[in-house]
C-alpha cells in the first residue's frame, strides 16, 4: 500500500494521477500489441496459438 493513497469511505483514491496515466498508456500499448499480434496470426495462419 502506497503511503500517499487515501481511503475515503471504502474507496481507493490515487495519490498522483500522472503516474496512473503513464501506467495506463503502458498497459494500453501492451494490449494493443497483443491484439495486433493475435489478429495478424489469425489472418496469416488461421489460428492464434496452435501450429497449423
Amino acid at each position: 500500500m502506497s503511503p500517499e493513497s487515501q481511503i475515503r469511505g471504502g474507496k481507493v483514491i490515487a495519490g498522483n494521477n500522472i503516474y496512473t496515466g503513464i501506467i495506463g498508456i503502458a498497459l494500453f500499448s501492451v494490449l494493443a500489441t497483443l491484439t495486433f499480434v493475435a489478429v495478424k496470426c489469425y489472418f496469416q495462419y488461421g489460428t492464434i496459438f496452435s501450429v497449423p
Binding site: 502506497s2 503511503p3 500517499e4 495519490g15 498522483n16 503516474y19 503513464i22 501506467i23 498508456i25 503502458a26 500499448s29 501492451v30 494493443a32 500489441t33 495486433f36 499480434v37
Partner: peptide
C-alpha cells in the same frame, strides 16, 4: 508515492513502449 516508484513506473512504461514497438 516514493521517488523510486515513480522512476520504476516511467522505466516500465518506456520499456513496454519500446518492446511493443519492436514487436509490432
Amino acid at each position: 508515492m516514493s521517488t523510486l516508484t515513480k522512476i520504476l513506473i516511467v522505466l516500465l512504461t518506456v520499456s513496454s513502449l519500446f518492446l511493443c514497438g519492436i514487436v509490432v
